[in-house]
Design a protein around this nucleic acid. Structure first.
Lengths: 199, 199, 199, 199
DNA sequence: TGCTAATCGAGACGGTACGTCTAGTCTTTTT
DNA sequence: AAAAAGACTAGACGTACCGTCTCGATTAGCA
């Protein structure tokens, strides 16, 4: 966290003051945590950061852009590599749910998705981000393909999409708690399918 | 659509005027279609419906409640029963994507999900609705279990959750077009899994 | 006071229900006392009287008319007749100030004057009422003229107007307390004038 | 009158824009003249001034405060000094009645008095204003005392109060026309009294 | 060293929407 | 026929935010 804005920050000349940027991002995160998405307004962030509204608008053209930068500052959950795809996927989802539950990330991301439903810029940024994450997540599947664990014709990005969809939907419907069994089940279905092969 | 409100509607006594309710729901849908979720306000709906704001607030305590009723008026996509689960699921998702693409339903539902991120009432209503839909969708899997097509230990509701998640996420990220292959792929992975069993 | 409207009054057939009229006037007075003129609305009176708004509008075409009837129910201060005009006028004003101070009458009358500034009906009713009161008050002066106490060419109604004006203005500017000396002074000036006749 | 707001006024920095203040006061006066006190609303003023409602509320906490400032902008009738108190008082009242009749001042002041009956702030402001005016008006009597025209023990402020009361009451009851004789009579009674001294 | 230019906090501006309150009208049901 | 009840359109209330604008102060870098 940056310095608290006890004393007013001044201009540092004809260039961006990083202290202001930090203070604004800190304030945005704090407002989101304390007041939720419905209480998240540029006004509130400016008040909290002791910043002028134009300072915010100068650097972030919209609420969505600010939200996006706040989200980007958060730690990401990284993909495990245990040598076993089932363990990897279950571990990834467990970590992701835990991360969303116990840090502001979950609320920030929910807000970002909501914002993307009314702001084209946010939608585009979210689409980019999500596509990138699908590739990253897909690496787990690619590794499993390389190990021969997964069929070579499997679309790793599509599988990553299914995994991410499961996570997003649980986030958006407040189902992050006590979902360990569901996570295990969903991963197993993707890996092994649900058909009865005895027939 | 109900009658256009050319002449002002009057009270019909000490009970709800269905013409007003219809006009408000019609107007809400129209505003959502024409101005999108970001332009969707109680004011705008009242203007469009030639209704007083208190009339709206009397019957719908929040924007979310109104959105929900607008969504409920829409036709639902029903679950096919072809005797083959793969055909059922693919057909269901194809129909759902088409429905969301070509009617206001998609935008309404997106808006409802967004609203649920900042309104607890909307969140609860959405959770209820989604749970119900998982059961309905799950019937396709139950039928397949009864046919012996699917293993008897499979959790039908969880599978429905996975299917719905895939659809929701595509809706929320504007990926409803040209997804036929992805739909087929995803359904196949759920049915057959992605593991390589030759090993 | 009429019966409290604990249980809803019912229609008594095709004629005016006097209990309703009383309940409405009682409620109007109570609302005025408790919430003041700013809180005095037909809506509030109807709520308090457990009456429908149309019932009020049927009998009193405007807020002003209702106010006027509420005022009319109040006791009036009557004009003393001591055989001495100074005592009569001072006594009258003392009683009037006391009456306005200690009963709802003062607030009701203030409200009526205020209402008359935006409602023509109220203005006309108030004008009628005030003209009548000037005549009544003027009787004190007429009696003094008959006694030879006051010059015969004096316009009794004009004097009554001056006395009433003094009272009204004190009411409207919250100067009803501790004005005994001012009352005595004003009455004396009207009776004896202020000119220095030694010249 | 200030410039018409053909082009939208902008902020002129972190301080009050006098053009907005002027436009708002102009609009308030115009609304009062055209629609009367009953049509006088902050909404109407904002519309007419092409100003935002918050701009009005920022500077005038209540309708009463705005009314008061509108009234303060009006010209005041000043007290004549002819060397003869009767001429002074009659001239003053004639001018005041004429001023109230032919300019918006009369309606504005009536509205202010009405507003003061339901708004404590307006009541206080009006009390202050009226007290000040009594002192100003009282100077006519003080001058007459200095000339020996009026007894030295006469309370000039009380006499001014009587004169003002007469004027206020005529304003509030729409009796500003054809009152010349009444004015003369009232002034004469105050100066000479009404008692018959032949006795 | 003095000027220019961009940045800062600050807060006013015209607006829109919020959710509530009241006005005055209307219709049905009950007596 | 009148009362109770409560819905209806309409619009004002006072507040919160929106995104823009202008200020005055501040400071780096260029002249």
């Amino acid at each position: 966290m940056a310095q608290p804005a006890d004393t007013a920050r001044k201009s540092i000349g004809a260039r961006r003051n990083p202290a202001s940027a930090d203070a604004i991002l800190d304030a945005a995160e704090a407002v989101l945590v304390e007041a939720g998405y419905s209480g998240f307004s540029i006004e509130a962030v400016a008040r909290r950061a002791r910043a002028g509204k134009p300072t915010i608008y100068r650097w972030w053209p919209s609420k969505a852009a600010l939200l996006f930068d706040v989200y980007q500052r958060q730690k990401r959950v990284d993909t495990p590599d245990t040598g076993n795809l089932e363990k990897d996927l279950v571990g990834f989802l467990d970590s992701l749910f835990e991360h969303w539950r116990s840090t502001p990330s979950g609320n920030i991301f929910r807000s970002l998705i909501a914002e993307a439903q009314s702001d084209d810029g946010a939608a585009a940024a979210l689409a980019d981000y999500a596509a990138g994450r699908r590739v990253t997540t897909g690496r787990m599947i690619e590794r499993a393909k390389a190990r021969g664990e997964v069929r070579s014709d499997v679309d790793a990005v599509l599988v990553a999409d299914m995994v991410a969809s499961f996570a997003w939907t649980h986030l958006l419907t407040n189902r992050l708690n006590g979902e360990e069994a569901a996570i295990r089940g969903a991963v197993r279905y993707i890996l092994q399918g649900i058909l009865d092969h005895r027939a």
